[in-house]
Simulated assay, not measured.
Amino acid sequence: MSIRDRLPKKSPPKAETKHDPLWVVEGTPSTKALYQAVNLEYNRLSEIIKSGNAANPKDRKLVLANIAKIAGRDRSLINVRRQPELCDYIDRLNEELEKLTDLHKGKPNKSKQLTKRELEREVGILKRREKSNSEAELRAIVEAFFASHLLDDINKQALEVHKLRQENEELIDRVTRLQKQNRQLSSEIAILHDLLTPAQRAKMGGLRTVERSKNDE
């Protein structure tokens, strides 16, 4: 065995740095590529925010579609189910970008001064916005007014319907009682009729005939 064979063999260098988290070191090639893309995009956005040029909301937040494009991967790979650690990492970096934005948004951009025309345009936009807000508030007040009166009318109609229903139920109950009383009287008349003698029945028939004649006159 040669001296060279006795020397300890060095392990091949790892592609990941010692600062990479374990989920990246042990992750798939897609995880590693997306992780590197997130860091590149974060560094780029940080510089834009610090320079005061982050007027576009997309320049202040990590956009998943951009990360996937930089990594050369499909956007569908970036989801909580398939890449939970990566999604959590992106959320934390977005919080850092938000803090960075709050820190630098008060700094004016000295490299760009608004012209008179641009200032007039901004004033026009603010006036139109104020007018739109005033019209929206007025419309809301009018709608609330009519809605309130409409509700009053509905309540009045509901009370009237309730009152009519009660009266209808009372009439139905009265008719039911009269029908019951009529059936009881008919039953009693039939019983009394059975108790009469033939002569009394004949007399009753004669009285009914006379009564009908008087009614016909």
Rank of each mutant, 00 (worst) to 15 (best):
A71E: 12
D91F: 08
N43P: 01
N79E: 05
N43K: 05
I90F: 12
I78F: 07
Y89M: 07
N79W: 09
A68C: 07
D59Y: 15
G52A: 04
L86T: 09
E47P: 00
D74H: 07
L62C: 05
K69C: 04
L45I: 13
S76W: 03
R81E: 10
P57L: 06
E98L: 08
E47G: 04
N53R: 02
I49S: 01
R44T: 10
K61M: 14
D91W: 12
L93M: 15
N53W: 05
N79R: 05
P84S: 03
N43Q: 09
C87M: 13
S46L: 03
V80R: 12
V80S: 06
R44V: 08
D74F: 01
N56E: 15
N94R: 05
V63F: 07
D88T: 14
I67Q: 03
R73H: 04
V63P: 01
K61R: 15
E47D: 14
A65Y: 12
I90S: 07
L93G: 12
K61C: 06
D88F: 10
K58H: 11
I78C: 09
D88W: 08
L100P: 07
S51D: 14
A55T: 14
R82M: 15
R82I: 15
L93S: 13
V80A: 05
A55Q: 12
Q83K: 13
A71K: 02
L77P: 02
K50N: 02
D91S: 13
N56Q: 15
A65G: 07
R44I: 03
G72H: 01
D91E: 13
T101M: 09
L45V: 05
E95D: 13
R75L: 00
G52F: 11
C87G: 04
I49W: 03
E98K: 08
A68V: 00
I90W: 11
P57C: 00
R44L: 06
T101C: 13
C87N: 09
I70Y: 11
R81P: 06
A55V: 10
S51V: 07
L86C: 05
E98A: 08
A54P: 02
I67G: 02
D74I: 00
R81C: 03
L97N: 00
R82L: 14
A71L: 03
R60N: 00
D59R: 05
L86N: 03
K99N: 08
L100M: 09
R75A: 02
D74N: 11
I90E: 06
K61H: 15
I49Q: 00
V80H: 04
N56C: 15
D59N: 12
S46N: 07
A65S: 11
L86V: 06
L93Q: 12
R81A: 09
I70D: 02
S46V: 10
D102G: 07
E47C: 06
L62S: 04
C87Q: 11
N66I: 12
D74P: 01
I70C: 10
R60S: 05
A68S: 14
A71I: 04
I48R: 06
P57F: 04
N53S: 06
R82V: 14
D74M: 00
I49L: 01
R82E: 15
R60Y: 03
L45P: 05
K58Y: 12
R75V: 00
S76H: 09
I49P: 03
R60V: 04
L64N: 08
L97V: 01
C87L: 14
D74A: 06
K69Y: 02
E95H: 15
A55N: 13
